[in-house]
Write a protein that binds this DNA or RNA. Structure first.
Lengths: 190, 209
DNA sequence: GCTTTAAAAAGTAATAT
DNA sequence: ATATTACTTTGCAAAGC
């Protein structure tokens, strides 16, 4: 069994798509969004930032949103409800509850051990390592689908997971592979 | 039927034209970089294989050719920095790097096959800097020790080699400036300085004043 | 494909002082 | 020469070009 007791994971960012099921007049919406930007020429949505909860929202005329920068799923729900309250003031009607889909979660973490990335790249199948272009090993996990960046410090970044559970599963798979190829117990033998 | 043949002919025509363009671009790069014939041939093989596997879709022929040249250099241990290739290519370094990683993934060019020993970079840079065999050996010894102490993971191989040559030059009384080593390695002076500091500190090197 | 948004890792690069 | 800021990599949705 892989020892995960020293492994840490922290949510850094959550990206969600949201459907409000209402068409929006962005020209009107822009009036009630304090710190927002709207340049249809360069991007079709309104870029709006909330300070509490601290997130960024992309608002589209279709009534669909993209919420990014959240540190928890609850932050996303609060941000969506906050926006809905604001939209009600300009006459938007909401017939049903918004649909929120978590699309991507980004985690930073630590495996609690240092790695010789040359050794990792030599033995770990299906990984990429180009230190001239990026300092970490890139490892793609098929199921659950996620990508892990592994650094020599043992720190990691896991992205693409749709839940915290999936992220832990992905990291567990990476650790099993590292263990399988004898890359875990190394201490001095670089 | 006839239309089908015509469209097939058109397709093969386009394919041949693209291949001809790709190979002429390869020729241009290879001659400007003075690449050995076998490297150019390997790059051509990689390119044909990439086309066969449909890896060109969504990528420019030029970026894929440049990527194949870089891959061939890595496979055949003929040191060339990505910057040198990007200099004479119409596409930027970032795009060539993306194409390179993409074909590496799909043509099964593993990190092991692509690995170029720091020694090869030491010799290339030392040639351009006119440094002696003694300096080269000293630089390699420094790099070996740095590797053993875990100081090289994640760092730019070119930056490490540049710093090792800079230090070895100082120790063997064949000094080259940080600017000179940085230039041949295609890294900045700040990178040379950062690697230099770390190597001197952690390997307890005594630099003559 | 591109455009925009968010955040981390650790390295390198560009620019300022 | 150093400090700060910025960019590299990963993942994803949105609407439109």
């Amino acid at each position: 069994m892989v020892d995960m007791s020293n492994v840490k994971l922290r949510i850094e960012n959550i990206v969600a798509s949201v459907d409000l099921f209402t068409q929006l007049n962005l020209e009107k919406v822009i009036e009630i969004c304090p710190n927002s930007k709207y340049n249809p020429e360069e991007f079709p949505g309104i870029i709006c930032r909330f300070e509490e909860p601290k997130v960024a929202l992309l608002i589209f005329s279709s009534g669909k949103l993209v919420v990014t920068g959240a540190k928890s799923v609850e932050d996303i729900e609060r941000a969506v409800n906050k926006l809905i309250q604001m939209l009600k003031k300009i006459g938007a009607k909401f017939g049903r509850a918004p649909q929120i889909d978590i699309q991507n979660m980004v985690f930073s973490g630590d495996i609690g051990m240092e790695f010789n990335l040359d050794a990792v790249a030599l033995s770990l199948p299906n990984c990429e390592y180009e230190p001239e272009q990026f300092p970490g090993v890139i490892y793609r996990v098929k199921e659950p689908r996620a990508v892990i960046l592994l650094f020599s410090s043992g720190k990691i970044v896991c992205s693409g997971a749709k839940s915290e559970h999936d992220a832990w599963e992905a990291v567990k798979k990476l650790l099993r592979e590292l263990e399988k190829y004898g890359l875990i117990e190394e201490e001095e033998e670089w | 039927r006839l239309r089908k043949w015509q469209s097939r002919l058109r397709v093969s025509d386009a394919a041949e034209r693209n291949l001809a363009f790709a190979l002429s671009e390869l020729d241009r790069i290879a001659s400007q970089l003075s690449l050995p014939r076998h490297v150019e041939e390997e790059a051509a093989r990689l390119y044909r294989e990439a086309v066969r596997k449909g890896l060109i879709r969504g990528r420019s022929i030029e970026s894929v050719i440049a990527a194949c040249v870089y891959a061939a250099c890595r496979l055949l241990k003929v040191p060339r920095t990505l910057d040198e290739i990007a200099d004479i290519s119409r596409v930027d370094k970032k795009e060539i790097g993306r194409s390179f990683r993409f074909i590496a993934r799909n043509l099964n060019l593993t990190p092991k096959k692509l690995f170029v020993k720091p020694t090869d970079y030491v010799n290339k840079f030392a040639d351009e800097l006119g440094l002696s065999e003694r300096v080269r050996r000293r630089a390699i010894a420094i790099l070996d020790e740095a590797y053993d102490k875990g100081l090289t993971s994640g760092k730019s191989p070119a930056g490490l080699v540049a710093a090792a040559l800079y230090i070895a030059g100082l120790l063997e009384d064949e000094k080259r400036t940080q600017r000179e080593v940085a230039e041949v390695a295609r890294v900045t002076e700040v990178t040379v300085r950062n690697r230099y500091k770390e190597l001197v500190d952690k390997l307890n090197l005594k630099i003559p004043v």
